[in-house]
């Protein structure tokens, strides 16, 4: 019984507490760096597209709102021919970012994407690609991958031995 009264009293005291509501359009929210908002495609330190078109983001997406087509340039470097996110379906769960093996797809602290027409929420690669490395500066997938795609030669990547000489019998 006393606890009930105490509860009522404590609740009453909240009348004089500072309110947590942020009056949004006038007052902006402070978003944390890892806030899961608008999705972007980043670039690697050399300015090349980071996305290699591996389809993992699309597979991870629980609402299937990512569609892309991988293609290759003359050096064998993979990149998306098109990359489309239907933000009218996106639930900003961030699974795509977690699935991305190259840090290409990143969710950034921006949620102000309101549109009057739903069609305008379909973002193509041009709309998604930003000229920045995003949250993971310095990472270049092709530097650590085994393939040769115009970034480094065979055996010239991080932690790689020079290519095997097939004719040598030396250990």
């Amino acid at each position: 019984m006393f606890s009930h009264i105490r509860t009522i009293w404590l609740t009453f005291l909240h009348l004089f507490k500072k309110k947590v509501t942020i009056e949004y359009p006038e007052e902006k929210v402070k978003l944390h760096p890892r806030w899961r908002g608008r999705i972007v495609l980043t670039k690697d330190p050399d300015g090349g597209e980071r996305c290699v078109g591996c389809y993992l983001c699309a597979a991870a997406c629980p609402v299937d709102c990512i569609a892309l087509q991988a293609t290759e340039d003359e050096n064998g470097r993979r990149y998306p021919e098109f990359f489309r996110i239907n933000f009218s379906r996106c639930i900003f769960c961030g699974f795509c970012e977690e699935a991305c093996p190259t840090y290409a797809i990143q969710l950034i602290p921006d949620f102000e994407m309101g549109e009057y027409k739903r069609q305008n929420l379909v973002f193509e690669k041009e709309d998604l690609l930003i000229n920045s490395q995003g949250k993971y500066p310095g990472y270049n997938f092709y530097q650590v991958a085994g393939i040769q795609a115009g970034v480094k030669g065979k055996g010239e990547g991080d932690n790689e031995e020079p290519p095997v000489d097939v004719h040598s019998l030396l250990p």
Binding site: H14, L15, V20, T21
Partner: peptide, 8 residues
Amino acid sequence: LALWQDRL
């Protein structure tokens, strides 16, 4: 209700 719940 809002005020008692620290809202506006």
